[in-house]
Amino acid sequence: MKNQKLEVKAALQVLKPAHEVFEAIVDPAKMSNYFISESSGPMEAGKTVTWKFPEFDERFPVRVGRIEQGKYVSYFWDHGDQELLVEITLTPKGDNATLVTITEKEMENDEAGLNWLRGNTEGWANFLACLKAYLEYGINLRKGAFDFMKPEV
């Protein structure tokens, strides 16, 4: 059997219209309520922004790929010596619901790739739950959730 590439895929329905979900993904002021702690700017096609997460001191460059208003966002970010593609697709479900599907690609089907697949599948499931909690209930599930990952001082 051929060594197939690994790809993360996660999806969740959010009870908000696609344009609201889209804005929560591209607007750093909204993203800071459920995902990042800060960003150097909004996600715009062809731009590179820098994200900081609450549990890490480092900043992470994100190269924005293609954006389709209210429908699709893609970007690239580094994983070691590789640049991985993240795609977020928004599919309206009636007037007040959106299916959010995230894929991240791709890694080799080996031990390192399987560890990445496990960790990033968990991470994207967490992202989706946090996005849903923020948009539907105004709750920041991420706040304090990953403090255990901060280095001990």
Rank of each mutant, 00 (worst) to 15 (best):
N140M: 03
T101G: 02
E111W: 01
I25E: 05
S32E: 15
T98I: 05
S40I: 01
D110I: 06
S39H: 11
S74R: 11
Q69W: 04
A45I: 03
Y72Q: 05
E104I: 09
F35R: 05
T50V: 13
F53K: 06
V26D: 00
K150C: 08
G94T: 06
G41T: 10
E136K: 12
R63W: 08
E108R: 01
I139S: 02
E136G: 11
P151R: 12
Q13W: 06
M31H: 01
Y134T: 09
S32W: 13
L84V: 15
A133S: 04
S74V: 06
E44R: 13
A45C: 04
V64K: 07
E83P: 02
V62S: 06
G113H: 03
E87I: 01
A145L: 12
F56M: 12
E55N: 13
F22D: 05
A133K: 08
G113A: 03
K143P: 00
T98S: 07
Q82N: 07
A145M: 15
K9F: 05
A18L: 02
M43R: 04
K30L: 14
V62F: 10
F22A: 06
A125Q: 15
L6R: 01
V14N: 10
W124Y: 05
T48D: 05
F56W: 10
S74K: 09
F76E: 13
L99P: 00
T121N: 00
L85P: 08
T101F: 03
W124R: 07
P54Q: 06
L141F: 03
L84N: 05
Y134H: 12
L99G: 00
E55K: 09
M149V: 13
A129S: 11
G144V: 06
A11C: 11
A10N: 12
I25H: 00
A133F: 05
T89S: 14
T89R: 14
N115W: 06
L90P: 06
G138W: 04
E152W: 06
V62N: 09
W124E: 00
V62Y: 13
K143R: 12
F35M: 11
